[in-house]
Design a protein around this nucleic acid. Structure first.
Length: 223
DNA sequence: GCGACAG
DNA sequence: ATCTTGTCGC
């Protein structure tokens, strides 16, 4: 599956109705099985912040080496915000800036942990899936809160997880990334299976609730 | 019609 | 997400 991005420009000046149509058209391109690079040596985190009361969108990408998890490359892109925040259409608001930031990198990462849902989305096409399909890079969705789906009680120990279900389908997992804190909502983005996605989120997580990738990206995109 | 609702 | 200091708790 060739990255959509390399085939033709993607229109971003769309209406919410058109955005939904695009999600429906691209969802079939999501690869739900493991197809990551053989030896992953770089893992990136992407995050978005806003300036001017929302007029400017600022995306940051932090590339860490693996397994060291040390910052080896970074990029920040600022673009005029052109789409409002609409639950379920987050990618249309944030991806343009994210792509601009990725283009500034010297080397593209082997895997990307996105700040937001992947498959755990109303139409199974959250920002992690969207970014993966457009770039062809393996991606994982890591949300700090729930968009859709239900789940049972979660044990308190780090590493504990329970499936996140919606309409009779497992769409992701609720993961305790650190003892005693609210869980993370993990789902596949592209070219990664759910169990592998959980493995990588834990592999990128240290003593804090959020993965090191996300923490670095957040630092760049905000404070 | 009444809630829920990633960042 | 963002506006924002000190403060409660492990």
């Amino acid at each position: 599956m060739p990255p959509i991005l390399l085939h033709h420009p993607h229109p971003w000046n769309v209406t919410p109705a058109e955005a939904i149509a695009i999600q429906q058209a691209l969802r079939g391109h999501v690869l739900a099985e493991d197809q990551l690079p053989p030896d992953i040596s770089t893992v990136a985190g992407v995050d978005v912040g806003f300036e001017d009361g929302g007029k400017i969108t600022r995306a940051a990408v932090a590339v860490l080496d693996y397994p060291g998890l040390a910052l080896i490359d970074q990029a920040i892109a600022r673009l005029p915000t052109a789409f409002p925040y609409v639950p379920g259409l987050l990618s249309f608001r944030e991806i343009p800036a994210v792509l601009a930031a990725l283009e500034q990198l010297d080397t593209l990462p082997d895997l990307i942990l996105c700040d937001g849902q992947g498959y755990a989305h109303p139409r199974r096409f959250g920002i992690a899936c969207h970014l993966g399909v457009l770039t062809g890079i393996a991606t994982i969705g890591v949300g700090k809160s729930r968009l859709v789906g239900r789940h049972g009680e979660l044990a308190a120990e780090k590493g504990a997880w329970v499936p996140l279900e919606d309409k009779g389908e497992i769409i992701g997992a609720v993961l305790r990334s650190r003892a005693g804190v609210s869980p993370l909502y993990v789902s596949i983005g592209h070219r990664v299976g759910l169990s592998t996605a959980l493995d990588w989120v834990l592999r990128c997580t240290g003593r804090y609730r959020l993965p090191e990738t996300t923490r670095h990206a957040h630092r760049l995109a905000s404070g």
